[in-house]
């Protein structure tokens, strides 16, 4: 049986420029930040990022690594507006944007996970989502209601990264917090080969039910190609119940992001070395 453990660098090394990469979590909640930091250290570029965006999108945008972004929002939750994303949007520095309703994004991932070309939904009808995304078409019900729906196209991923609380070496993974968000859909929307789970701790299979009920095992090993043990790997976003958001650090991040000098100092202090260097710098 396969031992799928690897490093964040191994996982990121499977990416090539221009790939469509899904990132799990929600806003500033349980984001695979150690993976994002590995992306920042790699030469990879021109990525199509698909995300319920938080600092993952902000950091990758600030580093100029996003060629295309598919999103429903980008926010730090306790700080409403993501400063790097805001700056990137206002400077028009992200070449291609697909802005969706939150539910449309879910539907696109779900369609991909079911191997359907689209799923019908009412979300988007009448809004400017349809104006700014002329590639999204509508479909008419073949039944007597004859209603028109948005035909939300599948968002098929080349790679997917999520951060969960626990996993075994084979890729069975567990969330212990209150919400899985759409992490299973990100994994299922991706063809086998580049589906990665980072986790707080790799544990033995027989220990999977020690900390949570069967309902916490929503990610099974057929959905996962690589397991990255990454303690504090969601920092500075939430990873309940292991840790909450580092609000003080997030405030520093947002403040630093607001001006180039501050940001350059922030990068020097936190983002210029390895993940181990980062963890050392943020331990306080």
């Amino acid at each position: 049986m396969a031992d799928k453990r690897m490093t964040a660098e191994d996982a990121v090394a499977t990416l090539t420029d221009g790939m469509t990469v899904g990132i799990g979590g929600w806003g500033s909640r349980r984001k695979p930040m150690a993976i994002v930091r590995a992306m920042l250290r790699s030469p990879i570029t021109n990525l199509h990022i698909v995300s319920y965006g938080g600092p993952d999108v902000g950091l990758l945008a600030a580093a100029g690594k996003i060629g295309k972004l598919t999103y429903g929002f980008v926010s730090l939750d306790s700080i409403a507006l993501e400063p790097h994303f805001r700056a990137a949007r206002q400077a028009c520095s992200i070449p291609q944007l697909v802005e969706l309703d939150e539910g449309m994004l879910q539907w696109g991932l779900y369609a991909a996970s079911l191997r359907l070309p689209f799923l019908p939904t009412r979300a988007g009808l009448g809004s400017d989502v349809m104006r700014i995304n002329p590639h999204i078409k509508t479909v008419v019900s073949p039944y007597p209601d004859g209603e028109q729906f948005v035909a939300m196209p599948a968002i098929t991923l080349d790679a997917a990264f999520v951060h969960l609380n626990r996993a075994d070496a084979r890729g069975n993974a567990q969330y212990l917090g209150p919400d899985l968000y759409f992490d299973d859909l990100f994994l299922n929307a991706c063809a086998p080969g580049r589906r990665f789970v980072s986790c707080e701790r790799v544990i033995a299979t027989e220990d999977l039910l020690k900390e949570g009920s069967i309902h916490t095992l929503k990610v099974n090993r057929s959905m996962v190609d690589g397991v990255i043990e990454s303690p504090n790997g969601a920092h500075f976003t939430t990873c309940e119940p292991d840790y909450g958001r580092d609000e003080a650090f997030q405030r520093d991040y947002a403040k630093a992001a607001a001006d180039p000098v501050g940001w350059s100092a922030f990068v020097d202090k936190y983002l210029s070395g390895s993940e181990a260097d980062y963890q050392k710098a943020v331990a306080r």
């Binding site: 429903g72 980008v74 994303f85 028009c92 802005e99 539910g103 809004s127 989502v129």
Partner: peptide
Amino acid sequence: ACIGPWEKPKAQLLGMRGGPGNTI
């Protein structure tokens, strides 16, 4: 979502969030 034209916003706000799906 944003203030100004969507293609070149003067001020980026949150994005669409759930507005389209909620209201419909």
